[in-house]
């Protein structure tokens, strides 16, 4: 087992008296494609910036390629790609200039792939950055970050300003990157359907805490919704162990559980003389169940 690419322990970040991240524990294994999801204001961007050393943590520990991100070595930086949520590039440069300029910083720059990506995303070499739309800027920033095939690629809402066609192109490119050995990707998003195709792992950030971090397949295997039809009306104190949410009236109940085990269904059937149907949930439904108040 190789060391995790990113690892945090009791990570905390506050801005003045406002705590944004509390007690974040997370280990991202090499080769994982992690989708980081959370509601607006849950701390996704803050977490990403702390992991990359763009913000100083308040307490706890963070390790990136085994180093402290606040004092990252030049070699570690050259293995890292990052596209922020809001892209800022030199407005006076043309596309071809920024590509040439950025390529000079990276030994691993692959000019052929950079050209392929520019073509694929229809970015004319002679366009000036100042005149480009947010979507085009985001595409350009992605080209710049993908072209040196970084070992770790961190993307903050990479598809937020992209149209569906560009989003699909982006996902293909991401999948292509991941085909090459051990590339690790961490991306935040609120578009769960994109994540379902590419992610191997899911991290859910809620109110500054990682409430779930696991393989995506394992999450889908574990989080389920049960529809219970009992022989008699259910009592007012009806409850199911490990329930994320439960609703019931008369003899029927709908219960979302975070960790379905083999025994639970049998227990319920026996206790309430009930018929229990298990429903699979997709990511969006899982996300909503975990955020039910």
């Amino acid at each position: 087992m190789t060391d995790p690419v990113i690892s945090t322990s009791h990570l905390k970040k506050s801005f003045g008296s406002k705590t944004v991240l509390q007690d974040v524990d997370m280990n991202v294994p090499a080769g994982a494609v992690v989708g980081l999801v959370g509601t607006n204001g849950s701390g996704k961007s803050t977490l990403i910036k702390c992991l990359l050393g763009l913000l100083k943590k308040t307490s706890g520990s963070i390790s990136l390629f085994g180093e402290d991100p606040w004092n990252l070595s030049a070699s570690a930086k050259s293995r890292l790609g990052y596209v922020p949520q809001i892209v800022k590039l030199y407005p006076w440069m043309k596309v071809k200039h920024i590509v040439a300029y950025t390529s000079a910083y990276y030994d691993a720059w692959d000019p052929a792939w950079a050209e392929t990506l520019l073509d694929r995303w229809e970015l004319p070499r002679d366009h000036r950055i100042a005149t480009m739309s947010p979507g085009q800027l985001q595409k350009l920033a992605l080209v710049l970050a993908l072209s040196y095939r970084p070992e770790l690629l961190v993307l903050d809402e990479p598809v937020a300003s992209l149209d569906p066609v560009a989003r699909r192109e982006f996902l293909s490119s991401l999948l292509e990157l991941c085909q090459h050995e051990q590339h690790t990707v961490l991306f935040s998003t609120h578009i769960t359907s994109d994540l379902e195709r590419v992610a191997s792992h899911l991290a859910i950030l809620k109110e500054g805490r990682i409430v779930l971090f696991d393989e995506l397949d394992a999450v889908k295997d574990r989080v389920k919704r049960l529809r219970i039809t009992a022989a008699n009306d259910l009592p007012a104190n009806f409850a199911v162990r490990g329930a994320l949410r439960s609703e019931f009236s008369h003899n029927r109940a709908m219960v979302a559980v975070g960790d379905l085990d083999d025994r639970l269904v049998g227990e319920l059937e026996e206790k309430w003389h009930a018929d229990v149907a298990v429903e699979d949930l997709n990511l969006e439904e899982i996300f909503l169940e975990l955020h039910h108040e």
Partner: peptide, 17 residues
Amino acid sequence: VRQMAADLQVNMMTVSK
């Protein structure tokens, strides 16, 4: 694995698994 993942647009690890 590579072909299937590319055609179905899913992660290679998914197909390997």
